[in-house]
Design a protein around this nucleic acid. Structure first.
Lengths: 110, 110
DNA sequence: CCCACACTTAACGCAAGGGCTAAGTATTTG
DNA sequence: CAAATACTTAGCCCTTGCGTTAAGTGTGGG
């Protein structure tokens, strides 16, 4: 149970901030430089960079530097982790529902 | 854009901890008392209670007290928030893919 | 070669998260 | 009614998160 644990920690922490979700939303449309991304955020560059690094260490984005510009890109596959977790959770609900139905059926018989 | 912002903050923060995800997993099988839930967590009761309160304030669970026992229950509908957010994100990817295809098609024609 | 540009590093302040112990409250239960 | 049960509150500690300013590094353009 609860495999992917530490990876999920990072992903959920990364998604728990509006600034970072905005970055992810923006990167959904394609890669962008740190400067471009920071332009939309109401904070100084060093502060914004911390968000970028957190997103990168969570695996949700990757970045690379060319010249003096660092470009950020979304790692779409990383979102599979959330999908899977959500799927697992729903599976548990389904099992329970099944057992409840079984229970109801048994009660009906007796 | 980015409606639900503050609600998502709370939900993602709540999910960012293994102890809390374990509680959610357990509650997927049905309601349980704080005591029962705490039994599986490697920490003292007061510490555990903080997790419960955080889960409740995020809206992922609700609790109610009967006598001296507080019972916790999952709010499955709250998970729709994550589903929707994930859906929005995928929609953005799809739009981009569509535009890319359009672009490729145009290039083909010329 | 010098300066502007695009980060990057360092150092700090404050609030919140996650854990603990100790003591308190409110219900049973014997 | 006394004692056990099931939380609850209060207070403390340490780490991490999020923001700041100030100064530094490396590239690119004039």
């Amino acid at each position: 149970m609860e495999k992917y644990s530490s990876a999920l920690d990072g992903v959920f922490v990364a998604l728990a901030d509006p600034t970072r979700r905005a970055v992810i939303r923006r990167l959904g449309q394609g890669p962008a430089s740190v400067g471009d991304l920071a332009g939309e955020a109401p904070m100084t560059l060093p502060s914004f960079m911390k968000h970028v690094r957190m997103l990168e260490s969570s695996g949700l984005i990757s970045t690379s530097k060319a010249g003096r510009v660092r470009t950020c890109e979304l790692n779409r596959n990383r979102f599979g982790l959330i999908n899977d977790w959500l799927g697992d959770q729903k599976a548990i609900w389904r099992e329970r529902t099944d057992r409840l139905e079984q229970f109801v059926t048994k009660e009906d018989k007796s």
